[in-house]
Amino acid sequence: MKPILLVITNSSECPLAIDRAVTLCREHDAELLVAYVHDPQVTESFQRLAMNQGFLGERVGEMVHDALSEDERLRAQGALLAIEKQVTALDVRCRSLETGGQLASAVMRLAFEHDVHHVVIARQSRSVLSRLVFGSPVRDLQRRAPFPVEVIYES
């Protein structure tokens, strides 16, 4: 059976999405792929803003960028390890992946690469204004993906 892809990001924890992905894996006797997608767009735009307005040099920018990237890498590893442990304890085969880029593109790339059956993704609560201005990568993924994308509302 084709694997199920669970997508996590740095925005928050997603216990409901994990539960749903495990249920799907059991139903279809499928492997679970857990993918951590690092979307640097927002972080980098804030960083650029700080550097330009503060007239801070490139070394300072590198320092901030390195600290944020390292933090994200360690958090991703921690989150993936915890989910892998949790899922393996439930007798479901599990593999973790890390990737970067805009959420919709990255998920579609992974889904095609690994020939997944179904994508499960968590959606966090955001303000209407934020969705209006920044858009919704999850909705965009749903609209574009030729495979099922199940969105789990975590909050």
């Binding site: 805009q102 593109s105 790339r109 858009g135 919704s136 909705r139």
Partner: peptide
């Protein structure tokens, strides 16, 4: 679908 394609979600 290539890694070079950027999907603008806005």
């Amino acid at each position: 679908i290539s890694s070079q394609i950027i999907v603008d979600t806005r």
